[in-house]
C-alpha cells in the first residue's frame, strides 16, 4: 500500500492518490510497519529526527510524539537496547510524527505488556475520535473486537468481508439466547412446540440456539412461563470469523483481518 513492494497486479490509493505521489507523505499517512525497522545503533530521538526532517516536521513535534508514547526518558538510548514493547512504541511514535489523517498499524499490540495493550487501544480509539482513519491489521480477533468499528477480512489474497463490525458478527453467527426460569420443563415444552431445543449451561441457565431473546420472551409470556432472566448471547468476533472461514475448507491459518476503528 505504501509502494514498498511491487504488486503482482492492482493499485492502492490513500485518499484517492497513490502513496508515492505525496510530497510529504508522513503528514497524510502514518504507518507502523515492523517494530524492528529502525537501525539499532541510532538513538530513538535521532531515528525520529531523520524521519521528521525528510517531511519537514519540526524537532518539537518529535519530542511531542516521544512524550505521547512514553519514550521521553529513554529517547537518548540506542534502539538496540530497547525491549520489543519499547520498539513498538517507537514505531507508533514514527507513525504519529506528521499528525496524519490516516494511520496504518500492523499488529500494533505485538510485544506490548497488558498496560501497553490498554494504552494502544485507547490511543487508537482516541485517534479515531479525532476524525482520523485508523486501519489496523491484526490476527488477534478478541483484541480487535474491543476497538474496531469496521471490518475487512482478507484471506488468500481475496476479500472475504468488508462490513461494519456489528453486522459482521450478526451475519456470521447463529442467534442464541440465554434464559433463567423457575420452570425449565414447561419452558422446554413451549420451545419444543416452536421447534427450538434448549440445553443447560453450567451456571443453571439455559441456552437456546437459533432464536433471539424477543422470540423466547413472546412465547414464554403467551404460555405464562415465569422467566427470571433473558438475554441475547453475543457471538465473539472469533466465532464469527471461524464461521466465515469454515465455508472454505482449504482456508489456511495465514489469513489476516483488517479493521478500521
Amino acid at each position: 500500500m505504501l509502494g514498498l513492494d511491487r504488486p503482482t497486479s492492482g493499485t492502492a490509493t490513500v485518499g484517492g492518490r497513490p502513496y508515492a505521489t505525496y510530497d510529504e507523505p508522513l503528514r497524510h499517512v502514518g504507518a507502523l510497519l515492523d517494530a524492528q525497522a529502525a537501525h539499532g545503533s541510532r538513538t530513538a530521538r535521532n531515528h525520529l529526527l531523520a524521519l521528521a526532517a525528510s517531511n519537514r516536521v519540526t524537532a518539537a513535534r518529535v519530542d511531542e510524539v516521544l512524550e505521547q508514547t512514553g519514550l521521553t526518558a529513554v529517547a537518548g538510548r540506542r534502539v538496540k537496547t530497547y525491549s520489543l514493547g519499547m520498539r513498538q512504541r517507537l514505531g507508533i511514535a514514527a507513525a504519529l510524527l506528521g499528525d496524519p489523517a490516516v494511520v496504518l498499524l500492523d499488529e500494533p499490540s505485538n510485544g506490548l505488556d497488558p498496560e501497553g495493550i490498554v494504552w494502544i487501544r485507547e490511543l487508537m480509539t482516541g485517534l479515531a475520535r479525532e476524525g482520523r482513519t485508523v486501519l489496523v491489521s491484526s490476527h488477534l480477533m478478541n483484541e480487535t473486537a474491543t476497538f474496531a468499528d469496521h471490518l475487512v477480512v482478507l484471506g488468500r489474497g481475496r476479500l472475504l468481508a468488508d462490513t461494519p463490525m456489528r453486522e459482521f458478527i450478526a451475519g456470521h453467527s447463529r442467534p442464541r439466547a440465554r434464559a433463567r426460569t423457575t420452570d425449565p420443563a414447561r419452558l422446554r415444552a413451549v420451545l419444543a412446540r416452536a421447534g427450538h431445543g434448549m440445553t443447560e449451561a453450567d451456571d443453571g441457565r439455559w441456552t437456546v440456539d437459533g432464536v433471539r431473546a424477543e422470540e423466547i420472551g413472546r412465547l414464554a409470556a403467551r404460555e405464562g412461563v415465569p422467566i427470571l432472566e433473558l438475554a441475547d448471547e453475543e457471538a465473539s468476533l472469533e466465532e464469527a470469523y471461524l464461521a466465515l472461514t469454515a465455508d472454505d475448507t482449504e482456508f489456511s491459518a495465514s489469513s489476516a483481518a483488517l479493521q478500521e476503528a
Partner: peptide, 23 residues
Amino acid sequence: MSTPTSTPSASASASVSVSAPVS
C-alpha cells in the same frame, strides 16, 4: 483502500494542519 476508509480521511484532513503544497 476501500470506500468507507477514504470518506472519513477526507473529512479528517480538514481538521489536521497540513502545510501548503511544497515545491
